[in-house]
Amino acid sequence: MATFVFLYFAAVIVMAASLVVIVRNPIYSALSLLVMFFHVAGLYVTLHAEFLAAIQIIVYAGAILVLYLFVVMLLNVKQEESFNRQGPVALFLGVVLLTEAVLLTVSRGFTVGTPAPGREGAAVGNTESIGELLYSTYLFPFEIASLILLVAMIGAVILSKKGIMESQ
C-alpha cells in the first residue's frame, strides 16, 4: 500500500515537473508546478512530516507561485515568446547531466541507501522536534540562512529606492 502511494506521488511529480518545462503557455507551466508542489506535500505526509507538508504548501504554493502567476499575467507573456536561442546550450547541459545520472545509477546499482532512523516513538510532535533541532543542532546554518535573507531584503530595498535616491 505504501509503495503504491509512493509510486503514484513519484509518477505525478515527475510528470508535472516535466510539463512545467515542456508546456508553452507560462500559465499552464505555473499550474503544473502547483500540482507538483501538492504532490511533494503529499509525499511528506506519507513520511509523517505533516509540518513540512503544510509549510511546503504555504510557502511555495501560497506565496511564491502566486507571485510568479502575478508577474506572468502582468507581463502578459505570449505563447510564442519562448527562448529559442538557448536550444544548443540546453542540449549540451542536458546531455552532460543525463550522462552523469546514468553513470551514477550504473556505478551504484539500483539499491537505495538505508534512510537515517526517524524519531518515531518520540512523544513530541514533528513541529516540536523540528523546532528543537533548528535551535540546537542546526543553529549555525539557521543563523546563516537568516543573514542571507536579511542581505537579500536590504538589497531589494536599495534596488527599489535607487531612482528615488538619485533624483534627490
Partner: peptide, 25 residues
C-alpha cells in the same frame, strides 16, 4: 484533530487565491 490544524487552514486559504487569479485571467 491533526496536530498542524492552524497551518492546514492557512495552507488551504492561500490556495483559494489561485481560483480568483485564474478566473480573472
Amino acid at each position: 484533530d491533526i496536530n498542524i490544524g492552524v497551518l492546514y487552514i492557512l495552507a488551504f486559504a492561500s490556495i483559494g487565491a489561485y481560483g480568483v487569479i485564474l478566473g480573472g485571467w
